[in-house]
Nucleic acid binder design. Structure first.
Length: 324
DNA sequence: ATTCGAATAT
DNA sequence: CATATTCGAA
């Protein structure tokens, strides 16, 4: 811990005044509890093993800059009256942008993890069948904004289970009705994620929902979906008021099935470890699957890899045609 | 002017 | 198949 930079050091580029919302800071780890920015997330060995470009040291400035952007964006659009008070989180982005060999299919995923520090993760057991608590994992992002200025095509985004989770949670919270790319993107708060990325995924997601709704009901009884909890109900949910006195009654016939807690998107992700380079790397992927039903999760949530990434193209491929 | 979203392209 | 890009509509 050598960094003695105040995270609230930025002087409002916009000259605004409200740069801190005390409520948002409640419960957040102290600056001293966080892993130093200078610490590398990926051990050098692993990095080289997977051809991961080493991350340059990041300075507080970078973080603050990103922070400013997020804050300004949030308040700029006020995220619709519906989005009400959503906590603004910032993700530590991974820098990339120095060298990038562009070849045929360069894919990059925004899933990274930080925080090796152990802390108590509060998890509201999703016992209530109602809506399910919105748990969060976390992701990090990559992509530098100022460095990738112009003439740089971003590599294909890979929707890792983590990202997708985040996506689903946000959509669920917004309610299918209000979930539009821009809003989703903002709430996901993943650095480097673009509206287009979200739009594309959303299109697919909607398709999925449609299928599911259409064909029904319990098709896939056979498989026990582990987390087949696509918390997006067939109807639409709405996350307004968020338990607050803010009672806004949009054209949605649905009351507000949401838990008192305003689903925040926690940041610090649980340290994820990969089994073994050999197991994941190379090309030893498989896809012996079959009895999967439809849960969208299945769309990417391959069994046990908790969410790693690195490298190349997405090894998975499956069909969700509910035929069998 | 912006951005959504279906269609289409990679 | 998964994402990206296009392009007319809101």
């Amino acid at each position: 811990m050598g960094e003695e930079v105040r995270i609230t050091d930025y002087d409002a580029a916009g000259g605004d005044d409200d740069d801190r919302v005390s409520e948002w800071e409640v419960g957040l780890p102290n600056i001293d509890d966080l892993m130093p920015l200078s610490q590398s997330l990926v051990p050098a060995e692993l990095a080289s093993a997977f051809s991961i470009t080493p991350e340059p040291h990041r300075s507080m400035i970078d973080v603050n800059r990103a922070s400013q952007n997020t804050l300004s964006n949030l308040r700029l659009h006020s995220v619709k009256q519906n989005l009400n008070k959503f906590n603004g989180f910032k993700s530590f982005g991974e820098d990339k942008g120095d060298e990038m060999v562009m070849e045929g299919e360069e894919t990059v995923d925004l899933t990274g993890d930080g925080c090796s520090d152990s802390r108590k993760l509060r998890r509201v057991d999703s016992g209530g069948g109602g809506g399910g608590a919105i748990g969060e994992e976390a992701d990090s992002a990559l992509r530098a904004d100022d460095s990738s200025t112009r003439t740089s095509k971003r590599p294909r985004l890979v929707w890792t289970p983590q990202l997708h989770k985040r996506f689903v949670d946000v959509v669920a919270h917004l309610g299918v009705k209000n979930a539009v790319p821009k809003t989703i993107m903002q709430l996901m708060n993943v650095e480097g994620l673009t509206r287009e990325n979200v739009a594309s995924h959303l299109q697919k997601y909607r398709l999925y929902l449609k299928r599911m709704q259409g064909l029904s009901n319990e098709g896939p009884s056979s498989s026990d979906h582990l987390f087949a909890s696509t918390p997006v109900p067939q109807s639409l949910q709405e996350s307004s008021g968020g338990g607050n006195g803010n009672s806004h009654a949009p054209p949605v016939p649905i009351p507000m099935p949401y838990p008192p807690q305003m689903v925040p998107m926690p940041y610090p992700p649980p340290p994820q470890m990969m089994p073994h380079p050999a197991a994941a790397g190379g090309s030893g992927y498989h896809h012996g699957f079959e009895s999967h039903s439809h849960p969208f999760n299945m769309m990417m949530q391959q069994r046990d890899w908790s969410g790693n990434k690195f490298a190349s193209v997405s090894p998975y491929q499956h069909r969700m045609t509910n035929d069998k």
